[in-house]
Simulated assay, not measured.
Amino acid sequence: MSQNPSRVVAHPLVVRITHWVNAFAMTCMIASGWAIYNASPIFAFRFPVWATVGGWLGGSIAWHFAAMWLLCANGLVYLTYGLASRHLQRQLLPVHPREVVHDALLAMRLRLPHETGRYNAVQRALYVAVLLLGVLLVASGLSIWKPVQFAWLTALFGGFDFARKVHFGAMAGVVGFVVVHLALVVLVPRTLPPMFTGRAMKPRNTQKGHHA
């Protein structure tokens, strides 16, 4: 069989746009959230000022809410497209723990294979986890933002103070996702250009992969 590579669609336009909007909005939310945290820390440390945005508490809150609405709107676009096109089902499921451990070990040995247009087990697990963390962030954020109006939700999180810790923990999980995500890009750098162009080189005889 011929091994000549061909150009294929690795990431549809909607996925690429929502990916980069998410990256921008998430960065703004994390940096502004750190500034808000610094105004009333719940642990014995503060984040460096250079890693925050907003300049002061009011400015940071404004950044945080602006990024939140952008992230939520973008997330709805991604979820709507993902469900309608079955992109989420094809790319993120199933997630088997044994496969995740296997691919994680390969990644640590710098032997992680990558098939154009398909997520490996580690990527699938990370994306599912970060989607769930996003839901937790929104829910805990609402309980902190409107503890009276959403008293039932705040109570569900064990009160305002514990809801802040849950929100912080979910944020830490998202930061961890970003770190691992970037590490995987470093390990397999050819995955980055298709997130801009949408297309990648693929052997003609490969049977699997996503064609949008």
Rank of each mutant, 00 (worst) to 15 (best):
Q3W: 08
V175R: 11
N38E: 03
P12T: 08
Y127V: 10
P94T: 10
P203S: 10
R190F: 04
A200S: 14
R46E: 13
H96V: 15
G209F: 04
A155W: 06
P97F: 07
R90A: 12
V95W: 10
L132A: 15
L187S: 14
T197Y: 02
P147L: 04
W69R: 01
A35M: 12
A67K: 08
I61Q: 11
L110I: 07
W145M: 07
A212N: 09
V122H: 01
V101I: 15
V53I: 15
A25Y: 01
S6E: 15
N22E: 03
S40E: 13
P193L: 11
V148S: 10
C72P: 00
G158A: 10
R199T: 15
A73L: 15
R109P: 06
V174T: 12
Q3I: 10
P147W: 10
G75L: 03
L92M: 13
N205G: 04
A212Q: 12
L131C: 10
R199D: 04
R118S: 11
P189T: 10
A23G: 11
V175F: 05
F24C: 12
N120G: 09
A125S: 09
F150I: 01
M1Q: 05
A125Y: 00
R86T: 10
T191E: 12
P94F: 09
L92V: 08
A139W: 04
M29N: 09
S60H: 00
L105Q: 14
G134E: 03
L112S: 13
A25R: 07
V130Y: 02
H19A: 09
N4E: 15
F24G: 01
A212K: 06
V21M: 11
A73Y: 02
H102W: 11
W63C: 02
V186N: 09
